[in-house]
């Protein structure tokens, strides 16, 4: 069965070779006349103010954490879905209990305004 992953490995090498060679070729044959203005960050033609490495909204961290929690749920659902017809009602109740526990957290996030963006 492991042999079916060999083509994927070959494809990975082919595609990586394609992407990297594209970058190398354009770096070799493109023109190079760097100036200080050209290499400065683009800020609509105005002198750049400060660095871009600043703090950003905590909202993005919260989204990332919620993603991890709910993505694990999705991953659990996949093997369950494959075996669903043999599990039948037992499987449905089992998964319903698991999802209801998660939904308690979901409702809590909703009530605390985790999905709001101002």
């Amino acid at each position: 069965m492991l042999i079916s992953y060999l083509p994927i490995l070959i494809l990975l090498l082919v595609v990586m070779g394609f992407a990297i060679s594209n970058i190398i070729i354009s770096a070799l044959i493109g023109r190079h006349k760097p100036t200080a203005e050209k290499l400065s960050p683009y800020e609509c033609g105005v002198e750049p103010i400060g660095s871009a490495r600043e703090r950003f909204s905590v909202k993005f961290y919260i989204i990332a954490m919620m993603f991890v929690i709910f993505d694990i749920e999705v991953v659990f659902l996949y093997p369950w879905a494959v075996a669903y017809k043999s599990l039948a009602l037992f499987g449905l109740i089992e998964m319903a209990i698991f999802i209801i526990i998660l939904l308690v957290g979901y409702v809590y996030i909703w009530k605390r305004g985790g999905f709001e963006w101002e």
């Binding site: 023109r31 190079h32 006349k33 290499l39 400065s40 960050p41």
Partner: peptide, 9 residues
Amino acid sequence: IFKEDIIPA
């Protein structure tokens, strides 16, 4: 391909 490849400073 022939464009200048800029890497910001």
